[in-house]
Every structure is written in structure tokens, then in C-alpha cells.
């Protein structure tokens, strides 16, 4: 691995960190535009001016915004996400288990959807303009149009209520046996898979097709290589980077889908935690969870870009 690649990768990571910093400013600023302030929303309209003033003092709300931002940022960097207003609990502690639950769910959804999408994408290219291909583009069209809760409740209605194969509410707890845990997340994981599958399939198809239509694939065919070898030796090495890119973008998409799916299945993850606290107007929690979601999202995008950099022979072997 030569130095230009390292430089580019380092640049990309630095850019990502910079972006994350800017995002933290944006999230912080986004929660400062409310009429009134946090103290008001904790104590409600009927609060006396004296108690408001006390609470403001206690929460440090009398400091200017930038000081509060840096105090918050300093906390985040050192792992202190603050205290939830509604429950007075430490946010980092509450998030710990939930983050793990969410990642567990997203992981299994990805394990199912990524290989499936790539295989189906390959099939669509292999039988281009045929039945499979048409079916896939039809499904992709539908899936960009279906709300997550439609897919989710359909699954609940049929598989949990009518056939009773899996639980409709995904309760998980610490120390739950792996098998039971898998059964509990079966439906939400399926819902997530369906949410991203068609889109990922269609993008994979486009990426492979783009490579298959290039002149060097024709060269390979004109050497007498079998269709399989053409794909394995000539198409695949060039398609890998775009495919990784597709996968990462869809995983980022999956992270967002998690929010709604967790609410549908009452799954104790980050999404549900966020939604609960948005309704409670619990700003510190919303800031913390929003930042974590954004960090994951940015991280996946960085990985996608780095994959593209590493897979590019022009960068790997400079002149």
C-alpha cells in the first residue's frame, strides 16, 4: 500500500471528523431555536419565575450558547452525555444497552439483506430484461413507495397474529438465550431487510451492469473466456468498489429505518428511545442520540468512500 492512498484515506477520515464536528454544532443549534427554554419545558407553563430561575441556574442555562455548546461537546468527547431531563437518569448508561440492541438488530438485517441483494442483483444482470429483472425493478419501485410501518404491520398481522410463528412485540432482556433473542427480532429484522433490499438490489444491478458494458469485458469475451470467467476475472474486481459503496449507503439507510421499525415492534433500542424523548421534549437525550445516529451515518459513508479509494487501481498504482 503506497503513500498516496494513505494520504487520501487520512484526508477522508479527517474530513469525516470535521463533518461530525459541524454536525454537532448543527444539532446543538437546532435545539436552541425553541421559544422559551429547557427549564420552561421541564416545569411547564404554570412554573413560577423563581423556580424557573433556580432551574436555569442549576442547568447552566444563563451562560451564552457557545459556552453551553463547548461544555456539552466536552462531555460528549469524554463519554458524558449528560442527564435526561424527564427521568434524571444518566444518558450514557441508558443508551449503552439500547445501542447494543439496535446494532444487534441492524447487524442481522444486514447479514440477511446484503448477500441476498447482491445475489439478486447478479441474477437481474444475468437475465437482463427478462422476468427476474422486471420483477426486481417492480419490487424496487414498490419498496421505495412503501412506508416501513406498512411492511411492519403486514408482517405482524400475518406472521404474529394469524400464524403465530413469531412474537409481534420484540421484548428482549439481558441474559436472554440467543435462540429466543433471534426469534424476538425475526420480524423486525425481516421488516428492515425488506425496507432496504429492493433498493440495494437495484443499485447493485446498476453497478454491475455499468461494468459489464465496458470495453474490457468485451475484450475478455473476445478472448474466448466463459461467461463465468468473464465475470469472475474481469467484471468482479472492478465491480467490488461500487458494490461496497452501495452496501454502505444502504446500511446508512437501514440505520434510519431502525427508528420506525423499533417503534412498531416496541423494541428497546436507540430509535424508540429517541422517539420517546422527542415527545417528552427531553433535549439532552435528543441531542445525544441524534449525534450518535449522525456519527454512525457519517462513519458508513466514510467506509464507502475509503473502499472506493482502495479499490481504484489508479490510486493503488500511481504513475
Amino acid at each position: 500500500m503506497s503513500s498516496p492512498i494513505l494520504t487520501l484515506v487520512a484526508q477522508r477520515i479527517a474530513l469525516g471528523l470535521l463533518l461530525l464536528l459541524a454536525v454537532s454544532v448543527l444539532i446543538f443549534a437546532g435545539t436552541q431555536i425553541l421559544p422559551g427554554d429547557v427549564a420552561q419545558s421541564i416545569l411547564g407553563q404554570s412554573a413560577t419565575p423563581a423556580s424557573l430561575a433556580n432551574l436555569r441556574e442549576e442547568l447552566g442555562l444563563n451562560d451564552p450558547a457557545y459556552i453551553r455548546y463547548f461544555r456539552w461537546l466536552g462531555g460528549v468527547v469524554t463519554g458524558d452525555l449528560g442527564t435526561a431531563l424527564s427521568s434524571r437518569q444518566d444518558i450514557a448508561t441508558s443508551i449503552g444497552g439500547r445501542l447494543w440492541n439496535t446494532l444487534f438488530l441492524a447487524f442481522w438485517a444486514a447479514v440477511v439483506s446484503v448477500p441476498l441483494a447482491i445475489i439478486l442483483g447478479l441474477l437481474a444482470v444475468r437475465y437482463r430484461n427478462g422476468f427476474v429483472d422486471k420483477l426486481i425493478s417492480g419490487l424496487a419501485l414498490a419498496s421505495t413507495s412503501l412506508p416501513e410501518f406498512f411492511i411492519g404491520y403486514l408482517l405482524v398481522y400475518f406472521f404474529a397474529v394469524k400464524m403465530q410463528w413469531f412474537p409481534g412485540i420484540s421484548t428482549v432482556y439481558d441474559g436472554m438465550p440467543f435462540g429466543e433473542r433471534m426469534a424476538a427480532i425475526a420480524l423486525p429484522a425481516t421488516a428492515l431487510t425488506l425496507v432496504v433490499l429492493a433498493h440495494m438490489m437495484r443499485m447493485t444491478r446498476a453497478a454491475i451492469l455499468n461494468v459489464m458494458q465496458s470495453a474490457y469485458v468485451e475484450t475478455a469475451e473476445l478472448k474466448g473466456l466463459s461467461a463465468f470467467d468473464v465475470i469472475r476475472k474481469h467484471a468482479f474486481p472492478n465491480a467490488i468498489a461500487p458494490i461496497i459503496n452501495v452496501v454502505m449507503l444502504n446500511l446508512a439507510f437501514l440505520i434510519v429505518g431502525v427508528v420506525v421499525v423499533e417503534v412498531i415492534f416496541v423494541y428497546p433500542g436507540m430509535g424508540q428511545y429517541l422517539v420517546d424523548h422527542v415527545s417528552k421534549r427531553d433535549v439532552p437525550v435528543v441531542q445525544a442520540v441524534g449525534l450518535i445516529f449522525a456519527a454512525v451515518y457519517i462513519g458508513l459513508n466514510i467506509i464507502a468512500d475509503i473502499a472506493a479509494i482502495i479499490a481504484n487501481p489508479r490510486l493503488r498504482h500511481p504513475k
Binding site: V256, V278, G290
Partner: peptide
Amino acid sequence: AIPTLIFGLVVL
């Protein structure tokens, strides 16, 4: 850089 739904929730 922030997923739309998340940012929407933050603002709301």
C-alpha cells in the same frame, strides 16, 4: 450528513 428523519426529530 444527518439522516433527514433524525434531523427532523431533533428539530421537532
